[in-house]
Design a protein around this nucleic acid. Structure first.
Lengths: 224, 224
DNA sequence: TAGATTGTTAATCGATTAACAATC
DNA sequence: TAGATTGTTAATCGATTAACAATC
């Protein structure tokens, strides 16, 4: 009577690293599917992404039993399941807050739209920017957030404001009912536990590249 | 005779997580310095960044002995040391490869220039883009890479091309002598071990935010 | 059936935190 | 000196990998 495709119901939150890899699995599965493949083993999926096969099985098993012993994973079925698990089996309307260079670029960036993330409202507090039109959307002041969140069912915001205003703006977002913040400001945000934050710190990452590159070149020659 | 400010000479590469945090420490130290503070303890530095004090000490100790028991860390001295360790005690000229929306945004992004990363050459293979002027720089074809790398002492490249050409372009970068790649293409790059890569996968991160937000909202209601 | 591959337990590895003697 | 704080060792925690019975 056991359904081998069962997903668990009593969910602990998945470790950060697991979720990141599941996103990669999904993308790779979609690539396999586009090539007309209908089944993969954990070792095939893993080697395409340079990930250990046991890790692939363990990551997937975290969310349920999706595989068929002796066969592997049915791609179509697994894609469907992973999209649901990640919460991208539906559209996410986004607010874009901060219309500087980075904000304007993110607005045009294709990578998000492809995966169901649609920017539907623009905000900035600079009077110079308010009223300007981008992509058919008018930039509004942050005071309009509450109504936009309500009227357009927005639950996520991209935050691309300068570091010194990031926390203040985040507080406003939280107060107006935003549930998740994609933070590009080089600042750790403090938010209530009910609100999710993912931070993308480009300077930190570029500094990491400088470190690795320097280390690869015979390293830092310290005095011993 | 021991110099308590010694840095070690036989260096293992630091763990990824350590390097990321060191970048954060440096930024926080600069903020403290701007406030006129001249000394911090590991617990002051840690609490500003929500990081355990033992972790702060251990991370710093990985690179040498910088602290003064009973006193803490002298900010000016530590900033200098960390900048050197990260390899940002000098300028890094960058090539920007791929002048799509994201590439053009990164060109304008202030966060990099502030930290010594200067984009000094633009590349794209789209004939429509070649010859166009951005910020006083002309977009060149990838064939010009070798001479630019040589003439402008470029060792790092930002790669902002579509996924389907990313590996091919990366191969060219490597062949022309690039030592580090900041990869924005949603693709794991395969490069020789002498070349460093840091990947920023915006879609994966946004999917993570969707997952967390959904999970925080009573989670995914699976069938048990 | 024989071969392949899963899900999971046990073993390993690495990272974080606690505790404290040494130091200023 | 007494108080503060480091660097480091030991304890804990979590994540990755190996191994294998169960399954198709």
């Amino acid at each position: 009577m056991r359904d081998p495709r069962r997903e668990p119901s009593g969910d602990k939150p998945a470790p950060k690293a697991v979720v990141g890899r599941v996103s990669l699995y999904l993308r790779q599965l979609e690539a396999f599917q586009a090539q007309g493949v209908s089944t993969v083993s954990s070792s095939q999926l893993g080697s395409a992404l340079v990930i250990n096969d046991a890790q692939v099985r363990k990551d997937l098993a975290f969310f349920g039993q999706f595989g068929y012993p002796g066969i592997g994973y049915r791609i179509e079925e697994l894609i469907k399941a992973l999209r649901r698990i990640l919460g991208i089996d539906r559209d996410w309307p986004l607010a874009l807050v901060g219309m500087g260079n980075l904000g304007r670029a993110l607005l045009k960036y294709r990578g998000f739209r492809n995966r169901g993330f649609r920017i539907v409202a623009l905000f900035d507090n600079d009077p110079q920017k308010i009223g300007q039109d981008f992509d058919g959307m008018v930039v509004r002041p942050l005071d309009d957030l509450a109504s936009a969140i309500r009227d357009q069912s927005i639950s996520l915001a991209i935050l691309s404001v300068p570091a010194d205003t990031a926390q203040r703006v985040a507080d406003q977002l939280v107060a107006r009912g935003i549930l998740g913040i994609f933070n590009f400001a080089p600042m750790p945000l403090i938010v209530p536990p009910s609100v999710s934050v993912i931070a993308v710190d480009l300077s930190v990452q570029l500094e990491h590249l400088a470190y690795k590159t320097q280390a690869a070149q015979g390293g830092i020659s310290f005095v011993g």
